[in-house]
């Protein structure tokens, strides 16, 4: 199952990156969201899947799944939420001010 999950993570990255390389801001944000999903799955796969009980101490159970990737992912989910919402508002502002959400038109000026 780990192999399938690794492939799934890879596909999520692929679609994410492809979206990221587009010109429209909304697509780029969707791309970052997909990449973070892929990353979470990636971290989870690096541990061992489905070995033992959920990581909550219970009488009589010795074997638990790895709690460390889960803790990392939990942090990451929240952070990626913050990133996504910031990007969304940024895109909203950028398109309001500049009248376009096309990255090719949002360039720096020539005097930089």
């Amino acid at each position: 199952m780990e192999l399938i999950m690794a492939v799934l993570a890879g596909i999520l990255f692929t679609t994410g990156i492809y979206n990221l390389l587009q010109k429209q801001l909304l697509r780029i944000i969707i791309g970052t969201a997909l990449i973070s999903h892929g990353a979470h799955l990636f971290i989870l796969t690096m541990g061992e899947l489905k070995r033992g009980a959920p990581p909550i101490l219970t009488e009589g159970i010795e074997n638990y799944t790895d709690p460390l990737p889960q803790a990392l992912i939990l942090t990451s989910i929240v952070i990626s939420f913050g990133v996504t919402s910031l990007l969304l508002v940024l895109a909203y502002r950028a398109s309001q001010v500049n009248g376009t959400d096309n990255m090719e038109q949002l360039r720096g000026n020539d005097y930089e």
Partner: peptide, 17 residues
């Protein structure tokens, strides 16, 4: 580029596992 990146991540995931 995107397929390459996805393949890379898959390979890294499998290798590290």
């Amino acid at each position: 580029i995107s397929i390459g990146f996805g393949a890379m991540m898959t390979m890294v995931a499998i290798s590290s596992h």
